[in-house]
Amino acid sequence: MIKFLDLHKINNRFREAFEVSFSNSLEASHFILGSNVSRFENEFAQYCGSKYCVGTANGLDALTLILKGYIELGRLQKGDKVIVPANTFIATALSISHAGLEPVLVEPNPKTYNLSLEHTEEALTEDVKAIVMVHLYGQLADVEGFKNLKNKYDLLLIEDAAQAHGAALNTNNLRAGNLADAAAFSFYPSKNLGALGDGGAITTNDTELHNAVSLLRNYGSREKYKNEIIGYNSRLDDMQAAFLRIKLKALDVDNEQRRIIAKQYLNGIQNAKLKLPYYNGTNNHVFYAFVVEVEDRDDFVNFLDQNHIGWLIHYPIPPHKQRAFYRFSHLKLPVTEQIHKRVISLPISPVMTDQDVQYVIEILKKY
């Protein structure tokens, strides 16, 4: 059986270091906003190339607190509209609603699955104050294009980098997390940089935003029992920060291994029934997921099951078809709807063997 993702194998590589780290954390017994959090924040900010990093409880909170932070600073107001790709994971749209803002769902580019620059500009109105560009499946969005829109229309530009840890622009090797006004990351266990539980982070070069989200994540307080604003409890766990510090050192190597596997898939899977992902061969993709399109997905799923190949669907139902967002159910989003009906993710991870990869390739050539 080729597992879709073998988390035990991925994390077992770090077992000895994890055990030492756990023992040290237990000895120190500083479990909330301890030294591991501040050290990870410094190390991850340096990795991304950003000035600041603020650890949060999860990726959804990271996005929500960015938006809440801009509201605190007066750069957004309740009811403002925020553009978001229609085919993203629902958390991106949820963050906008949680912040008291209004999501504007925009179709993706069918080639890359990332937010369409053209459709975004068409959707701009006076009420739109921000764009959340999602680096979906680990591939950077059209960063330069969206920066031009941001400057042209005086908008906030926010990265949802939950799936793009380490993805870098070709021109100057700028990484996700340092490509916009602020960025949100998730460290959900399946991510390229995954914790052993939930976790998230905000990166930014904006000192005012850094100060605001630092307050928001900790009850609106910088000094215990003195609350300056209406805040939340959304802190990165110190133990998880310790584990993330260990895994961060291997992230670039792991990402490169994912790209190697992706290139093998792209070169080896020759089957007209499968639409393979777009990839320009650079470091702008870290292949959180290797996503293919197939016309009859149910039939393909049965084929994979019969041949003992794991799979996952990112994502079976688009946000505007979810009951939670029933108010958007009237929208006609044909590109998004087709993507959600046809996409399926194949196994890809840094612990797959070459034998595993070749088996997947040979089987898929026979579909």
Rank of each mutant, 00 (worst) to 15 (best):
A17Q: 15
D181V: 07
K332G: 03
D6Q: 03
S97C: 14
H320D: 04
I260S: 13
N170F: 02
R245T: 08
E16A: 15
R15A: 13
H320E: 09
I261A: 14
V360Q: 03
H308E: 12
L156T: 08
N233I: 13
S21C: 12
F31Y: 15
I202F: 05
L5E: 10
A164P: 10
Q270D: 13
S97T: 15
L101M: 05
L312R: 12
N148V: 14
S21Y: 01
Q46M: 04
L274F: 00
L136Y: 01
V132G: 05
E337G: 11
Y367I: 09
D299H: 02
K224G: 09
L33E: 15
V335H: 00
C48P: 02
Y52H: 15
V84L: 03
I269L: 03
A324F: 08
L304Y: 01
I96S: 10
I96Q: 06
N36F: 08
R323E: 07
Q240P: 01
N255T: 02
L149C: 06
M239S: 08
S349W: 00
Q355L: 11
A324L: 08
F44G: 11
D80V: 02
Y367A: 11
E293V: 00
K147N: 14
A28I: 11
V292G: 06
L136W: 05
N109V: 02
V132P: 08
G138T: 07
F14W: 13
A162I: 00
K129D: 07
F22P: 03
E362K: 15
L244C: 07
K224Y: 15
S50I: 09
D254F: 13
H8L: 12
L266P: 09
I158C: 07
G79V: 09
L251F: 08
F328W: 11
F287K: 04
N11D: 12
K366M: 11
R222L: 14
D299Y: 00
N271E: 10
M239Y: 07
K111A: 06
E102N: 13
K3I: 08
A212Y: 04
I131Q: 02
K275C: 06
F300H: 00
A195F: 05
S214Q: 03
I71P: 04
D254P: 06
D356G: 06
L179C: 01
P334R: 04
T120F: 00
